[in-house]
Amino acid sequence: MWLQSVLVPLLRLYLCGMKVLLYQLLHSSFTLPVLPRQNGRVAIVTGGTRGMGYETARHLAGLGMHVVIAGNEREEGGAAVRRIQEEDVEGRVEFVFLDLTSMKSVQQFAQTFKDRGLPLHVLVNNAGTMMVPESQTEDGFEFHFALNYLGHFLLTNLLLDLLKRSGRPGCCSRIINMSSATHYAGVVNMEDLNRRVCYSSHGAYSQSKLALVLFTNYLQEQLTAGGFPVTVAAVDPGMVDTALYDNLWSLAQALKKPVAKILFRTPAEGASISIYAAAASEMEGVGGCYLYNGQKTQSSDSSYDPELQAQLWKKSCELVGVRG
Rank of each mutant, 00 (worst) to 15 (best):
K209A: 09
A204E: 11
T231N: 11
D192P: 03
Q207D: 05
G226D: 14
R195A: 09
Y245G: 06
A181L: 01
L244A: 07
V197M: 11
A181Q: 01
M239I: 15
G226A: 15
C198N: 08
Q253G: 13
V187W: 12
T182G: 00
L223Y: 06
H183A: 01
N194T: 10
G203R: 04
T182M: 03
G186L: 00
T182S: 00
Q207S: 07
L210W: 14
L214I: 00
V187T: 15
Y199D: 06
H183Q: 02
N217V: 02
A243L: 05
A254F: 12
A181E: 03
Q253E: 04
A243F: 10
Y205S: 12
G226F: 08
S208A: 10
N194W: 04
E191T: 02
A233F: 03
K209F: 05
R195S: 15
V230S: 01
G203C: 01
Y205H: 07
T216F: 10
R196P: 09
A254E: 11
T182A: 00
Q253R: 15
G238D: 03
W249L: 08
N189P: 06
Q253L: 11
V240D: 01
A204F: 02
A185L: 08
R196W: 05
L214M: 08
R195P: 06
H202K: 06
C198E: 14
Q207G: 11
P237N: 01
S208G: 02
P229F: 13
A234Q: 08
M190V: 09
D241A: 14
A233K: 06
L251P: 01
G203S: 04
D236R: 02
F228V: 12
G203E: 03
A225G: 10
H183T: 00
G226C: 10
A254G: 07
V232C: 10
V240T: 04
S200D: 02
A234E: 12
L210E: 13
S201D: 08
T182H: 00
N247W: 08
P229C: 07
L214Q: 09
D236E: 07
V230R: 02
E221K: 03
P237Q: 00
E221L: 04
N247C: 08
T216V: 12
E221D: 03
A225V: 01
Q222G: 09
V213F: 07
A252G: 12
L223V: 14
E221I: 00
H183L: 07
L210Y: 14
F215G: 11
Q220F: 00
G203K: 05
R196Y: 11
V188N: 01
S206M: 08
Q253A: 10
G238P: 00
T182E: 00
Y218V: 05
A234M: 05
R196F: 09
L219D: 09
A225M: 00
G186M: 04
L210R: 11
A243N: 06
Q253C: 06
